[in-house]
Design a protein around this nucleic acid. Sequence first.
RNA 1: GCCCCCAUGGUCUAGCGGUUAGGACGCCUGCCUUUCACGCAGGAGAUCACCGGUUCGAAUCCGGUUGGGGGUACCA
Length: 451
Amino acid sequence: MRVRFAPSPTGTLHIGGARTALYNWLLARGQAYGPDGEAGTLVLRIEDTDRERSTPENVEQILDALRWLRLDWDEGPVFQSERAERHREVLGGLVESGHAYHSNATADDVRAYKERHGSERGFRGEDESSGAIRLRVPSEGETIFDDVIRGQIRFANSTMDDFVIARADGSVLYAFANLVDDLDAEITDVVRGEDHISNTPKQLLILEALGIEPPRYAHLPLLHGPDGRKLSKRHGAASVQELREAGYLPEAVDNYIALLGAGFAADEEFFALDELARRFRLERVSKNPAVFDERKLRHLNGRWIRELDTDELTARLEEFTGRAGLRDAVAISEEKIQTLAEFWPLVGFLFDGPADDPKAFAKVIASDGGVECLKAARDALAGAEPFTVENVEAALREVVEARGTKPVKVFQPVRVAIAGTTISPGIFESVVLLGKDETLARIDQALEHAA
RNA sequence: GCCCCCAUGGUCUAGCGGUUAGGACGCCUGCCUUUCACGCAGGAGAUCACCGGUUCGAAUCCGGUUGGGGGUACCA
């Protein structure tokens, strides 16, 4: 089995494109678990023939996103723009055999034709000596294919235009270049987005003119935004790069986008890439479009964060934040974060000093006996020796006991004094990590501020 | 307009002729508890888009309607 992923570098890699890449990858890698035990081959092709919009930066960004997602390919990247000669060669053969012809017909001419012959009738042009090249589409019969996901799909030839396959300057159009490249790469299974369904009969017709057997086709449902439209940049974090910057792990992104369009088990959804590959069945991919829901991604991301061991998570977080020496802070906060982006707001106070949150200060310290509790806590902490989590906890609980109050009345003022906010990792762990001197200094500062 | 695809709770899905329509996210209520999360235990939420047909029996098969989506370029 040979499959391919063929993005065009006219922008960043979209999660829709990422999912197409992922499904192709799963299909190829999943073959290793099949009857013949041999993995398929994934070919990467860059369809950069749109000179206006394709850029080297986009190419690099796409390759980068694929690598980040851990989706490796076996061949390529092949650049479509470098294959123009071959495209012309195949095109020439088609003109020579009479399956394609030159035509100067414009879009207006096509419209006029339909007005005369009926809107459901495909355009048929005149053979001319110059102009664009159109494929001669038969007026009888149907073009039929068995989509692996959707079953049989049929198009009446009479409704299809003699479509343009090459410009007047001889450069070929997308559907044609795409087909020739798949042909030369010996692609056996074309797995692509549903927006290509109407391209398929065109490519089938070209294949027929060429006398070549078609590959299998599978058209994936599209991904929609919350508004029900095809997902685009307008829908928030729509690109892989944006998800990465938002603090999502590649494991979670792979896991989540795999779920958008297929069920991998009746009662479980948490799967690593290799498990997804083992379970993936192209025939079982759903037919209807899915809405990208970041909340579920967040949930899966949280599970993946807790799945990583502390060392690995530390490495990810140090890369994400650009800071070093984070392991201890990671150890006391890994249970609490859902994304990498949530880490620093939670533990930054350990490194950069307390946050400035007047509301928290007013509510917790500057009211209702907060100052007294904080003073008592300060004294208790000063006496804790050695300054361990156990001793700190014991010291603070003694204060609670002595004052006959609730734990929260003592712990929260300490929290706000050292962190500046009401939200932080466990208070004993935080205090110990900060160290006795720094903790007492911050408490003194808070008391001073309250006075 | 024309061609094509699709339709299970708000969202993603399981289901493939006989189920109390299962799971996940989200939401609500408890528990845990030092804040926030996590975790655990419950709960609300679906006339399986609608209509007709086939069948003893339909979410499951067929047809139509409606709704949504995609395509319709000398773009990719």
